[in-house]
Amino acid sequence: MKLHRVLALIARHLYLYRRSLPRIMEIFYWPFLDLVIWGFITTYLTRFQGQMPGFVTFFLGALILWDMLFRSQQGITISFLEELWARNLMNLFASPLKPSEFLAATMVMSIFKVATVGIVLTLCALLFYSYNVFMIGLWLIPFILNLVLTGWVIGVFTTSLIMRFGQEAEVLAWSMVFLFQPISCVFYPMEILPNWLKLVAWINPAAHIFEGMRAVLGAEGAPSASLAWAVGLNGLFLVIAVWWFYRTFAYCKDQGLLVRIGE
């Protein structure tokens, strides 16, 4: 892997954000809107604190963490879509650029988006709702890192589908992650799911992170087991997703789809 090629792609995307208001809005607008809506819901639910002790504090934390997962996935998929929209894939893959370097650059862009959204949401939550996400403590760091990994898994998988099926599959860039939301148990514990769905949720690394977050906020002790499951599952799925990406890339080259995508 050559660093200069990864940096070239990162520069290409940063140039894009430098003068594109809609793209900057895309990073800030939706997360902020989500925060405002859930912030008001949380404020309203706080009135029933007696009946639901502690639960309301989960919502904003869960929302912020979920948005980080979402932005992590978007960082990968939207970066690919930008190349597709610009009909630039041919320029890139006829150069010495390797698929691994392409993925590395999209992953860096994903970290950039997660960091930006994370800072904005944390500050807004503190400012508007006096909610301090750092009450999760140091666990916040491995939680976020794992959510970034889960976002990469979904992002790489979605990118492979778009590469294979072309612009018709573009909508997956925004919708795929929401397929995982019900089984990520973002706003409710895993135990409320029907038994068969619990099994599905169990193999979703994000569900373990949100379980862990609730354990920390509910003072139920260190969520080491949840974190270990999340790390293990993320590692496994990331290997599978990258393998799938390479396989799809080879298939698209064989079928001539790489040069026709975006036409």
Binding site: K2, R5, R12
Partner: peptide
């Protein structure tokens, strides 16, 4: 110019 810079970086 930005496009040319990106290509130049890509090829090192």
């Amino acid at each position: 110019e930005e496009n040319l810079w990106v290509i130049a970086r890509l090829y090192g």
